[in-house]
Simulated assay, not measured.
Amino acid sequence: MQPYFLPYLGYWQLLNYVDKFIIFDDVNYIKKGYINRNKMLLKNGLYQFTLSIDGASQNKKICELKLLGDHEKILKTISQGYKDALNFETIYPFMEDIFSFRSPCLVDFIEHSIKKICDLLSIKVEILKSSKIILNESGANKIIPLCKLHSANVYVNPVGGMELYKKDDFLAHNIDLRFIKLIPLEYDQLNTPFHPNLSIVDFLFNVPKANWGRHLEGYEII
C-alpha cells in the first residue's frame, strides 16, 4: 500500500489483518490523493488538511518528497475541532507526539505515524518500505516479486484494487489474491450526521477505546 497520511479506518483494518505490510513508496506521487492529505469533521463541516510538500510533482517518487515543516497548523486545527470530543484528554497529547516527529522526509514522517497508531490500536504487524528492497521490477510490476521475495502465499489489497489486479495473475505464482472491504459502523461525531471514511483522527477522538477492536474487525474478505 502507498503511504497515506492519517488514513481512514479501512487502512488500519488491512494492517490488522496481515502479518507483513510493505509501504509502497518508490512509485510516483499522485496529486490530490491521500498521500499527504485527508479529511476530518469540524463543527462547520468537513475540513481537508494537508501536509505541505516542497516541490510536489507527479514526476517524483513518494520517497523523494520533502516536507516544508509547517504541519503545526494541522495540530492546531485538530485541537480546536476536537476539544469537546470524548477522548480529547488522551488522544490530543498522542497527536502532539505524532506531529513532534522531526524529519524532512514525507515517508519517514508517515511511517512514524503509522507505527505509533498501530501501537495505540494494538496492531501487531511488520512494516517495511519497498524503496529499501532492491528488485529489477518497478511500480505495480513489483508486487508479485515482493510477495515471492517474502515467501507470501496470500496478498491482500483494499477492495478498490479489484479493478487493477486479477486473481489469476497471482495464482500463476501460487499466491492467493484477496480483497478487504470495510463494513461501515457508525459512531457519534459531535452531534452531526455520520460521515464515513474520514481520517483515523476522527475515529480516535470519538470512539470509546473499548469499541476500537469491534470497529477494526468490521470488514469482509473477498
Results as ranks from 00 to 15, higher is better:
residue 1 M to P: 00
residue 132 K to T: 13
residue 215 H to Y: 13
residue 77 T to W: 04
residue 32 K to V: 13
residue 31 K to I: 11
residue 137 E to H: 15
residue 215 H to E: 12
residue 16 N to M: 07
residue 78 I to E: 02
residue 102 R to M: 02
residue 93 P to M: 09
residue 181 K to T: 01
residue 155 Y to V: 09
residue 117 I to M: 08
residue 45 G to M: 08
residue 188 D to M: 07
residue 46 L to H: 04
residue 220 E to D: 08
residue 163 E to H: 09
residue 53 I to A: 00
residue 184 P to N: 08
residue 93 P to N: 12
residue 179 F to H: 04
residue 137 E to I: 11
residue 13 Q to S: 08
residue 212 W to I: 10
residue 7 P to S: 14
residue 180 I to K: 07
residue 79 S to P: 03
residue 142 K to G: 05
residue 62 I to H: 07
residue 87 N to Y: 10
residue 168 D to W: 15
residue 107 V to E: 03
residue 164 L to A: 10
residue 15 L to I: 01
residue 207 V to S: 10
residue 37 R to D: 08
residue 47 Y to M: 12
residue 45 G to W: 08
residue 176 D to Y: 12
residue 89 E to F: 15
residue 222 I to P: 11
residue 103 S to F: 00
residue 167 K to R: 15
residue 163 E to N: 08
residue 45 G to C: 06
residue 183 I to D: 04
residue 87 N to D: 09
residue 85 A to C: 11
residue 84 D to K: 13
residue 154 V to H: 01
residue 158 P to R: 14
residue 17 Y to H: 07
residue 137 E to V: 13
residue 107 V to S: 04
residue 2 Q to L: 02
residue 118 C to H: 11
residue 211 N to H: 14
residue 76 K to Y: 02
residue 148 K to A: 00
residue 85 A to L: 10
residue 5 F to W: 06
residue 207 V to Y: 11
residue 26 D to R: 15
residue 52 S to E: 00
residue 182 L to D: 12
residue 122 S to T: 01
residue 85 A to N: 10
residue 123 I to R: 00
residue 219 Y to T: 00
residue 209 K to E: 13
residue 112 H to C: 04
residue 27 V to R: 05
residue 108 D to G: 11
residue 35 I to N: 14
residue 147 C to T: 01
residue 211 N to T: 15
residue 42 L to A: 09
residue 109 F to E: 10
residue 24 F to Q: 14
residue 192 T to E: 05
residue 166 K to I: 06
residue 203 F to A: 05
residue 103 S to C: 02
residue 1 M to C: 00
residue 84 D to P: 10
residue 173 H to L: 02
residue 119 D to W: 05
residue 61 K to R: 01
residue 111 E to P: 00
residue 196 P to M: 12
residue 123 I to T: 02
residue 153 N to R: 03
residue 23 I to E: 08
residue 173 H to G: 02
residue 123 I to G: 00
residue 82 Y to A: 13
residue 194 F to T: 03
residue 68 L to R: 14
residue 171 L to P: 13
residue 40 M to G: 00
residue 160 G to R: 15
residue 14 L to S: 03
residue 212 W to Q: 11
residue 80 Q to D: 11
residue 194 F to C: 04
residue 188 D to N: 10
residue 83 K to Y: 05
residue 182 L to V: 12
residue 220 E to T: 12
residue 143 I to P: 13
residue 79 S to A: 11
residue 27 V to E: 05
residue 25 D to C: 06
residue 51 L to C: 01
residue 155 Y to L: 14
residue 40 M to Q: 01
residue 10 G to T: 07
residue 159 V to Q: 12
residue 93 P to S: 07
residue 199 S to I: 09
residue 198 L to P: 10
residue 106 L to Y: 06
residue 118 C to L: 07
residue 91 I to R: 03
residue 119 D to N: 09
residue 44 N to F: 05
residue 41 L to H: 05
residue 16 N to H: 14
residue 57 S to H: 03
residue 212 W to P: 12
residue 132 K to L: 13
residue 29 Y to F: 09
residue 65 L to R: 02
residue 13 Q to M: 07
